[in-house]
């Protein structure tokens, strides 16, 4: 049955991590070296070795995830262990260094590791929070289906606008050109689409016409198109065209809600992926720093 990565196998790896941490703390408290606790005592070496092995093992998750035919447990089990053991690493490394920090490679490795772990925390948060939001946002449609509907609406709106007037056609065309879904990282994360500019213009033009029939157009909105539209509506439009215009607005509203949903869908997906672009490269950097840390330790001591 379905259960989350945190409760996988009755939170087996949470208990393992807790035991690991408790034992480490107990040893640290019990251990009374001649100098202040540091990585050089036997406990320091032991914890350091455990931590280094853990880091290597945690990084193997990337390979396990891509070994699709392997029998080595489920990816879910690995991820659950990855999260809990990765978290316990914070304590183990702090105990390993005896809370000694400095402006050196060793602390650099520690800071890198903490960044990696905290980016992982963000990942866990994202994995727990966004899937539900994504489902709700999609309303049982797929992203492709929504995109398809948008392009269909675009096509129909253009046809409709064509029948009204060239000015309206231009506005709709601009709306289509302005609708940009996806794009760079920031665009994806901000969930902007720009599909609502044209519709706002047309709608306010409509309202204008209805509220101040015949009155002079209010100069509140800038833009050549706007003025032309209002002129057009005030002057030439007959009822049939107004009807078509209203239909056009309905269409564009539908499109806007779709575009917003797609943009949000992309945003959620981007959030669920973006942290990996920090988590993974930094963990490779960490591995390099870790090797540097180990080599330098053995070189200087």
């Amino acid at each position: 049955m379905h259960d989350s990565i945190l409760t996988y196998a009755k939170s087996r790896y949470l208990w393992i991590s807790i035991v690991l941490c408790v034992v480490s703390i107990a040893l640290y408290v019990w251990h009374d070296p001649a100098v202040a606790p540091n990585g050089g005592t036997w406990l320091g070496y032991t914890l350091g070795t455990i931590a280094a092995l853990l880091i290597v093992w945690l990084m193997l998750f990337g390979i396990r995830k891509r070994s699709y035919a392997t029998n080595m447990g489920t990816t879910r089990g690995w991820l659950s262990a990855h999260i809990y053991l990765g978290t316990s690493l914070i304590l183990i490394t702090l105990l390993h260094c005896g809370f000694q920090f400095g402006w050196n490679l060793h602390t650099f490795a520690l800071v890198l590791m903490l960044i990696v772990i905290f980016s992982g925390f963000f990942g866990v948060y994202a994995y727990l929070r966004y899937p539900t939001l994504m489902t709700r946002n999609r309303e049982s449609a797929t992203r492709d289906a929504m995109l398809e509907e948008i392009s269909e609406i675009d096509q129909n709106a253009l046809n409709l606008a064509d029948g009204i007037a060239p000015e309206i056609h231009a506005v709709v065309l601009r709306s289509i050109e302005n609708t940009k879904l996806g794009g760079g990282v920031l665009t994806q994360l901000r969930a902007r689409d720009g599909s609502d500019i044209a519709i706002a213009k047309i709608r306010s033009a409509m309202e204008q016409r209805e509220t101040q029939l015949g009155a002079a157009p209010a100069p509140m909105q800038a833009g050549q198109t706007m003025i032309m539209m209002v002129d057009f509506l005030a002057g030439r439009a007959d009822d049939k065209q107004a009807e078509a215009l209203r239909k056009l607005i309905d269409m564009l509203s539908r499109k806007r809600s779709l575009a917003t949903r797609v943009a949000r869908d992309i945003q959620y997906q981007a959030i669920m992926e973006i942290w990996l672009y920090f988590h993974v490269p930094l963990s490779v950097t960490l591995l390099a720093a870790l090797i540097g840390h180990i080599v330098s330790v053995f070189f200087y001591w």
Binding site: M1, H2, A69, T74, T75, R76, L79
Partner: peptide, 20 residues
């Protein structure tokens, strides 16, 4: 033909996919 069983389920990192 996979010794471990359904690959889709085993590859799911969050346990979202199950076969019942």
């Amino acid at each position: 033909d996979q010794a471990g069983g359904a690959a889709c389920v085993r590859a799911c990192p969050t346990g979202a996919a199950i076969r019942i």
